[in-house]
Simulated scan of single mutants.
Amino acid sequence: MRFAWIDLREVPRPQLQAVVDAAVHARMTGVVSADAELLGTLPPTVTRVLVPGGPTTASAKKGDKETKDAGSSKEAKDSAGSKEAKSDSGIDVLLRKFTTQDELDALAAENRAASGTPAAGFVDVRDDRTLQLSCAGAMALPYTVIHFADPTKIPLEIVLAAAESAEGKLVTVVSDLEEASIVFDVLERGSDGILFTPRSADDVFALARLLEATTPQLELSTLTVESIRHVGLGDRVCVDTCSHFEEDEGILVGSYSSGFVLCCSETHPLPYMPTRPFRVNAGALHSYTLGPDNRTNYLSEVGSGSALLAVGADGRTRRVVVGRAKLESRPLLEIRTHAEDGRLVSLTVQDDWHVRVLGPGGKVLNVTELQTGDELLGYLAQDKRHVGLPIGEFCKEV
């Protein structure tokens, strides 16, 4: 599970207590500080990370001379800080910089001795030598905190690959929330954790929302086809995502916000044209589609950069990003179904054989071949909607 450590060392003093309170309230995993007394005031639910001898990561982010000289010149001070921290029950982890293999070996040996507070390492990656050192640290230490000097994420990819089998946790320094969201997605696995310096308590709560952003497992329902009719020319939307759909995946689309049909992607072979494994021929532009955070959008609102839910026949979901949406006039077909509770679920799609929906078990069904009594997969929403958000109000859609 991904996590965050809040770095207090560069938080403005007027904001410090508010940030500390926010970190505890938002259940941040850890707090980093050079102030052992401050860390000692935190509850044991927070991992208290002490940087002995003063700033390490903050200075490295600036690339200043103090950090470059911090390795050997502070060893004695860091060692003293280590002994002090070990005698202080308010410290859970020591974070010390390593710049050579010998320093890394010393940290690893300290952890193997298991004689006190676990030692984590910090490394500033600026070239191939320090990149290889960070890979070694990720394999040897319980926590390896890495600051990457350059904006490219290729070095992070290399460390993630090198540390695939490591038991320790990789923590990446990020400059803002946007970078945090990127770091968590690198190689689909992402960094185990991040180290973030907030400017205010608001930043802490925004980070908490980012950490909690997951897609739900949906309970899909079986819908029974009532009728199918040709309704004439209208505008339909093809949704082209930036992801490759699985064979049993699609997106949820419906004419009413209370119910959706699982529309199939074009992953399966078709005559006369190649597959489009990124595409769903979704439906008429008035239709709702379900996105992350239990929010709906009209297909007319979907465009490049929009986020939607890819949904599998077993109800699993994942976030996908839209690359483009294609709006074109085509003959349309209305499919009316009902759920077991009698609820009406309607879908209007392009009237063509190659447009398909999914049935129970992920069965692929061509919309022009549907018959009364056929079963489709769908999702029944429990909430009414206003501007796409769930709301507890009376609303009837016909």
Rank of each mutant, 00 (worst) to 15 (best):
C263M: 15
L220D: 11
E249P: 07
Q217W: 04
S258N: 09
L207K: 03
P216A: 04
G259M: 03
S255P: 00
I251E: 08
F260Y: 15
S200H: 08
A208E: 14
E212S: 14
L223I: 10
F205E: 11
P198Q: 15
S255G: 15
D248W: 06
R229K: 15
L233A: 13
A201G: 11
P216V: 04
L233S: 15
D203K: 02
I228Q: 14
A206T: 05
S181F: 00
F205N: 06
S227F: 06
Y256T: 09
S227N: 12
D176R: 00
T214P: 00
T241R: 04
E247K: 15
L177A: 11
D248I: 02
A206P: 01
V204A: 08
T224V: 11
S257L: 00
S255F: 00
E212Y: 00
L195C: 15
T224A: 07
E188C: 01
S243N: 10
E188Y: 08
L195S: 03
G190T: 01
D192G: 07
F184T: 01
G259Y: 14
E219K: 10
G190C: 05
V186P: 06
V186N: 09
G190Y: 04
F196W: 05
E246C: 07
T214M: 01
G190A: 02
F260C: 05
S181W: 01
L207Q: 01
S221A: 15
V239E: 05
T224G: 06
L262G: 02
L211A: 01
L233R: 12
D235P: 01
H230Y: 10
I182A: 14
S255C: 13
R236S: 13
P216D: 08
S181N: 09
V253G: 12
L211D: 14
S258V: 03
C242F: 09
T197K: 10
F205K: 00
T222P: 02
S221C: 11
A208I: 03
S221P: 00
V186T: 11
E178G: 14
S257I: 03
L233M: 15
F245D: 13
T214V: 08
R199F: 09
V237R: 15
G250M: 09
R189M: 09
F184K: 03
L210M: 09
A201S: 15
D240R: 12
D203I: 10
V239S: 01
T197R: 11
G254F: 05
V261D: 04
T215L: 03
C238W: 03
I251P: 07
E219W: 01
R199C: 14
F184D: 02
G254Y: 06
H230C: 00
D240S: 02
S191F: 09
C242K: 12
L262M: 11
S257F: 11
F205T: 12
R236V: 15
L262S: 02
P198N: 14
L233D: 14
T214D: 14
R199M: 11
C242Q: 10
V231S: 02
T214Q: 12
I182S: 12
S181H: 02
R199I: 04
E188V: 02
G250L: 06
D203S: 03
A206Y: 00
C242R: 13
F245E: 10
S227T: 11
D248P: 03
R209N: 08
P198F: 14
G254R: 10
D248K: 12
S181Y: 00
D235A: 09
E219V: 06
